[in-house]
Design a protein around this nucleic acid. Structure first.
Lengths: 206, 206
DNA sequence: CGGCGTTTCAAACAATCGTTTGAAGTCTAG
DNA sequence: CTAGACTTCAAACGATTGTTTGAAACGCCG
């Protein structure tokens, strides 16, 4: 955000909104705080996005379109090569999120926003996410169903539900584990991904 | 809340605040909405609690004091009897939360509020919870350390961090699994607890 | 019944909320 | 160079926010 000059007003708003939504929640972050952080005029939000609700959806769209594409791409590559296993399919789900977290300053900002959305239990947000990105989870669920044929449908759905919870929570860095001094953000999150895959694969397989 | 006559103003406010915080978040639920739902005067919040922040803390205190007591009581009973295992220790952590979810109309309301607190990443709330209830997690961590001596400290903390995430997320009912028709809330949540223990134990043991 | 601490109440406080307005500024095409 | 579309701006809109006030109502004890 300090290099605001090279970003369009739209991009500056999206970046500042993402950070403030992660930190204070959707209701907790005001448009005045967002536009002040983005160093743009207050009215720019309604000019470029129409409303705060539309801004929120756009914050998701900007990241989730590519994240979903990469996840499904990896999954397809895996299955085409016959390499699908619990570990590799989990990796196909997690690694794109990991890369997203690392390709910009501030680390896991967007994953925290995404986890906030799960907490918004009754909101239009759940509907928006489910309508636009639900097919990703559906495809992965189908892959897991093939890898775990001994589980009946109900048992599988319970485990996937719990697994998604563990992934969401961990990728949002909600836990207590702090990055150790001398450890880079990248190393920290790669460690997390490794443990996450190991833990979740065991839970699914159990 | 419909039987407001038999509850004190304090209790009516706490109950309404809990439900609205679960539904709309701490910033999203206003004191006017809370007092309207509780059918008390707006000024009653500041009279009885001093401020909105104090009200939020009190919503946690009311449930967490007894929840923490019950969890540690079960853990102590287990260890005194020499019955401590991954499954029983996880059960000692989960069952009190399950009972709390079931002892009042509306089910998992408070667990959803608790999960919201985890999403409030930078807030005073994390400090408040850690300062006042961190010892519970510490005691359980020690129990798991005894049950998993093959894991070094770092490995154990990673797995516990992920396990807490899975438990928090699932108990808050953030997942996609809906209660099936013909299945009572109690049956649904007992199913969830069963799967949760099985999944998490496998992840810890892996 | 009278008096006193506790609780409730309607009303108002300044501050902040999302959104709208119309003019000023910027940019590009003709 | 100018016309016209696009973008930014300061200012203000009514609504809503958390909090405070002082008086009214209540409940209990002497």
């Amino acid at each position: 955000m300090q290099q605001s000059a090279q970003f369009s007003t739209r991009q500056k708003i999206l970046g500042a909104a993402e950070e403030l939504f992660a930190e204070r929640g959707f209701a907790g972050a005001s448009l005045r705080q967002v536009t002040a952080a983005a160093k743009v005029n207050l009215a720019a939000v309604n000019y470029h996005f129409g409303s705060k609700d539309n801004l929120i959806e756009e914050v998701f769209r900007r990241r989730l379109d590519e994240l979903s594409r990469r996840r499904l791409e990896r999954l397809a590559t895996l299955e085409a090569a016959g390499d699908a296993s619990l570990d590799t399919v989990l990796d196909a789900f997690i690694t794109p999120a990991l890369e997203l977290s690392l390709d910009r300053k501030g680390g896991s900002v967007f994953m925290r926003v995404l986890a906030r959305a799960f907490a918004e239990h009754n909101s239009n947000l759940r509907t928006f996410l489910s309508d636009n990105y639900g097919y990703v989870l559906k495809d992965f669920a189908a892959a897991f169903a093939r890898l775990l044929p001994q589980l009946d449908k109900e048992e599988l759905y319970w485990r996937l539900d719990i697994a998604v919870g563990a992934l969401t929570y961990a990728m949002a860095d909600f836990g207590m584990i702090q990055r150790r001094s001398g450890e880079s953000e990248r190393e920290h999150r790669e460690q997390m991904a490794k443990h996450l895959i190991h833990f979740t694969a065991a839970g699914l397989r159990a």
